[in-house]
C-alpha cells in the first residue's frame, strides 16, 4: 500500500473511531437519571474518605452544602490507571500480566505521540542532533511498550486458558481481543528488528501522512504493523475495552453519585415518572401503558 491510500485509510479509521466513541459516550450520558446506588468509599468526600465515610455521617447533613473535593478523585484514578491498584489489592495473581499489558498499551500510545512530534521536527527542519535524541526516545518507548505488552498479553492468554477460574469465562471474543493485542506488539517488534532506523522511518511516514504526501511509503513489516494498529483502533469501540473511557461513568455516574435531588433533576424525574410502563406482572397493573407515577400513587389511595 502506498500513496494516498495511507492517509485515507488512517484518517478514516481515526474519524470512525472518534465517531463511535462519541456515540457510545453520548448514549451513556443521555440515559435517564437513575435512582441512587452509591457505594462507599467515595473519594470526593475529602475529610471522611480515609475511613470510607460520606456526608450522611453528619447530624442533619442537609443544613449545609456538602463540598465535593476534586483532587482525591484524580489520585484515585491515577492509582487505578497507572498502577492497577484494585487488581493489586484483590487479584494479585493477575496483576503482573494486567499491569504489563496496560503499560504496554500506554507506551505504544506514547510512542505514537512521539512519532507525531518527530514528524513535526522533520517538517520544522530542526537540527539533526535534536532529531536523533527524539528518534531514540521514540524507539525506546515503542520497543519497551512492545516487549512489556507482549509479556502481559501472553501471560493473560495463558492464564485464561490454563487457570480454571478464567477458562470458562473466556469466549472466542476474549481470545481474539488478546491475540489482536499480541499482534500489535509482535508486529512492532518485527518491524523494529527489520529496520535499522525504526523511529526515523516512522517519523518520516507520519510527516508524509500529515502533509498528505502522495509519495508516502513504507516497508512491508512497518506497513503491517501500522495496519494492525489501526484495525485494532477500529475494533476497540465494539468491545469491553471501551472501559478506558466508560470507567469514568461507572464511577462518577453510579458508584460515587451521591448528589441529593436538585431542581434540575426534579424536572427530569417528573418526566420520567410520566412514562408508560409495560411490565406484565399482575401487581404492576400496567395495563401495558399506565404511567409509572400513577401506578405508584394508585396503591396509596
Amino acid at each position: 500500500m502506498s500513496g494516498l491510500y495511507w492517509p485515507v485509510f488512517i484518517f478514516t479509521i481515526v474519524f470512525v473511531f472518534i465517531a463511535l466513541m462519541v456515540y457510545r459516550v453520548l448514549k451513556i450520558i443521555k440515559m435517564p437519571v437513575h435512582l441512587r446506588w452509591e457505594l462507599a468509599p467515595i473519594p470526593h468526600d475529602k475529610e471522611r474518605y480515609s475511613h470510607g465515610g460520606s456526608y450522611l455521617e453528619e447530624h442533619e447533613w442537609w443544613r449545609r452544602k456538602q463540598p465535593k473535593a476534586f483532587f482525591p478523585i484524580i489520585t484515585y484514578m491515577a492509582w487505578e490507571i497507572f498502577l492497577m491498584k484494585g487488581v493489586w489489592q484483590h487479584n494479585r495473581g493477575l496483576w503482573p500480566f494486567s499491569f504489563t499489558l496496560h503499560w504496554g498499551i500506554y507506551l505504544v500510545i506514547l510512542s505514537l505521540f512521539f512519532h507525531f512530534i518527530n514528524a513535526m521536527l522533520l517538517i520544522g527542519s530542526v537540527p539533526a542532533a535534536v532529531q536523533d535524541v527524539f528518534f531514540s526516545i521514540a524507539s525506546v518507548v515503542a520497543v519497551t511498550g512492545y516487549c512489556v505488552g507482549l509479556f502481559g498479553v501472553v501471560g493473560l492468554i495463558l492464564k485464561r486458558y490454563l487457570d480454571k477460574n478464567y477458562r470458562e469465562y473466556s469466549s472466542y471474543s476474549t481470545y481474539f481481543k488478546l491475540l489482536f493485542l499480541a499482534a500489535i506488539f509482535v508486529s512492532g517488534i518485527v518491524a523494529w528488528a527489520l529496520s535499522n532506523d525504526f523511529a526515523n522511518a516512522l517519523g518520516v511516514f507520519t510527516r508524509d501522512l500529515f502533509t498528505v504526501d502522495s509519495g508516502i511509503t513504507t516497508t512491508a513489516a512497518m506497513g503491517s504493523h501500522i495496519i494492525i494498529i489501526f484495525l485494532f483502533i477500529l475494533y476497540l469501540p465494539f468491545t469491553d475495552m471501551v472501559h478506558f473511557i466508560t470507567k469514568f461513568f461507572t464511577h462518577h455516574s453510579v458508584r460515587w453519585d451521591d448528589s441529593p435531588q436538585n431542581e434540575k433533576m426534579t424536572a427530569k424525574l417528573r418526566d420520567l415518572i410520566n412514562q408508560p410502563v409495560t411490565w406484565s406482572a399482575p401487581h404492576v397493573k400496567s395495563n401495558r401503558g399506565n404511567r409509572w407515577g400513577d401506578i405508584v400513587e394508585k396503591e396509596n389511595d
Binding site: V87, L94, N165, D240, K247, S253
Partner: peptide, 14 residues
C-alpha cells in the same frame, strides 16, 4: 444506566 454500564464493561478478570 447502572445496568448497562455493568453489563457492557466487565472484562471477566474475576
Amino acid at each position: 444506566q447502572p445496568l448497562l454500564l455493568s453489563l457492557e464493561h466487565c472484562v471477566r478478570c474475576q
